[in-house]
Simulated scan of single mutants.
Amino acid sequence: MIIPVRRFVATCALGALGVALAACGTPGTPHAARPGHPASASGSANAQPPRPPTLAPGSSGITPVFTNGPRTKDKIVSLTFDADMTANEGTRAAAGEHFDNPELIATLRAFKVPATLFMTGRWADEYPKEAKDIGQDPLFEVANHSYSHYAFTDNCYGLPIVPQERMRAEVEEAYTAFKKAGVPHAMPYFRFPGGCYDQQALRTLSAVGVTAVQWDVVSGDAFATDADAVARQVLEGVKPGSVVVMHCTRSAAPVTEQALRTIVPELRKKGFRFVKVSEMIGSATQGERHGTT
């Protein structure tokens, strides 16, 4: 999901995306089985791992939207990275353009930073070994960023548009690509390409059983050339419970890895602890049940 910082707008929530959580879904108890992995009966030899936390559906069962975790004294933050590759970019990859970023993954490992990667199915098809390596590393979790990285609304940063009748398939085909690449347990979280969505898209995806994950901090790393500026923007924006959107795409976000080398130690100095989105959503649902959000 490559977006320039100056155009940080999601269709469902103009202005601050913090209102999306209230408008489109509220924290609740975990409710949905992981897409493609129905929950098995208790005690079954083929039982799946515990279901990751998700938000309860919004009104009329609409897909819930998660923007940030609780603003509590527990200073947790989620760094999320979009592994973007649009379906029509295959010729560019064949010509040598790099849509992956192994150095960024290596830096996260060196710093021992848990992270969530929102991966397109097309990216997993192009880089299956990297997708498998990331998906099998307990430090990371893989979530869904659609198969083709086409937009789910009109006027979304020039992206091609997914017809409504193809929206569900875009999500399901991405999970199929992850499984084919060897990602064992992709998470039931979905990030709209470009961050663009509307009520129609949320209604259409309700049957898939995912929680849509947005963010409250834009890193500004898309097409950036100044790592210090990216780091500064993140450090100035992070609050307890923040979800930061960044990118794992060398060609379109070339300074992200360098920026991380400043972001991670500085946030740790401020007392922040890095968590994956699943833990952040778990904190939100637990806080809702106990009235502490």
Rank of each mutant, 00 (worst) to 15 (best):
T153A: 13
V210Y: 04
G195S: 07
E97N: 12
S148G: 11
Y175T: 07
R168E: 15
G194A: 07
T204C: 00
S283D: 07
S40H: 14
M187T: 08
N101G: 00
F81T: 01
G287M: 00
A259W: 03
H185L: 10
P138K: 04
S146C: 06
R168A: 15
E141L: 01
K269V: 03
N101C: 04
A16Q: 14
H149K: 11
D84I: 02
G287R: 00
S42N: 01
G121N: 08
V230G: 08
V171S: 06
K179V: 09
P102G: 07
W215M: 12
T107N: 11
G135R: 02
A22F: 05
I2D: 09
G220R: 10
H145K: 08
F192I: 00
A33R: 07
D74R: 06
M246C: 13
V210P: 02
S148A: 11
A23C: 04
R203N: 14
I281F: 05
R109S: 13
D198S: 11
P114A: 13
A131K: 03
F223S: 10
T262D: 03
H145R: 12
Y157C: 11
L139C: 06
K75Q: 09
G121W: 10
T54H: 03
M85H: 04
H31V: 13
V275F: 12
L235M: 12
E130N: 11
K239E: 08
P160A: 09
V208D: 11
A10Y: 01
H247F: 08
A83C: 11
Q48F: 00
R71C: 01
V245D: 04
V243M: 09
R6H: 15
